[in-house]
Amino acid sequence: MNAYEKLKTARQSGRPTSAAYIKQIFTDAIELHGDRRYGDDPAILSGIAYLGDTPVTYIGIEKGVDLQDRMKRHFGCPEPEGYRKALRLMKQAEKFSRPVICFVDTLGAYCGDEAEERGQGQAIAENIMEMSGLRTPVISVVIGEGGSGGALALATADRVYMLENAVYSVISPEGCASIIWKDSGMVEQAAECLHITARDMQHFGVAETIIKEDPKHFDKMCAALKKQLERDVDYLSSLSHDMLVDGRYKRFRKFGIYNEEEV
């Protein structure tokens, strides 16, 4: 599959959403609502559950299953309240030394007027900054679309996994096409130029692990994902908090390709 075909696959309706992964991977999940500031964003599903024997905090961007559900959830485009709910639960996880598992699946943060009024940029900025210093392990799994800052706000993590056909991008290929070629029809070329596939993410160091997809055997795929999560949670939990945060700093510190002249 080329980048465009992967993009279409990642967006396909009927593709499992965060709710399906949460149900399949965790046990005894208890959903927790609200940002304690303004409201509760249905685009973010979050709570506490067991990963094997370990209590974890889960946070997933939920696109919804049928049209009505999808509309309610803004098709998985979170509002500032969603990001603030996520941060509240991450801070809570830090307090109780619970690992945080995020599922990312969004075209991007919601672009409404009220989202701007309530500080969409500020909400994302705060999540990214606070996650960089969070003293508990964070693992993010991009299960479909990783759309720009709205995805990074749940993916400033110690480990990032990409599902085999998931994509991650700084801008939607449609947006990119309309800026570069003034033609949103050039999506295929834009997707290619932007390098958005799981393999690209591994190449650039944005993701450590690619999870093989098997649409016919969702349970098996989730079992493999669960195993990987348990392995990484075990390892990351064995590190001191300082080592963990330091490792996360270094993980993001390395990004950047540029020329450096000698001084």
Partner: peptide, 12 residues
């Protein structure tokens, strides 16, 4: 590409 997105996390 995505490297520019990662600058947000690096600076933050």
């Amino acid at each position: 590409g995505v490297t520019s997105l990662m600058q947000m996390a690096k600076v933050s």
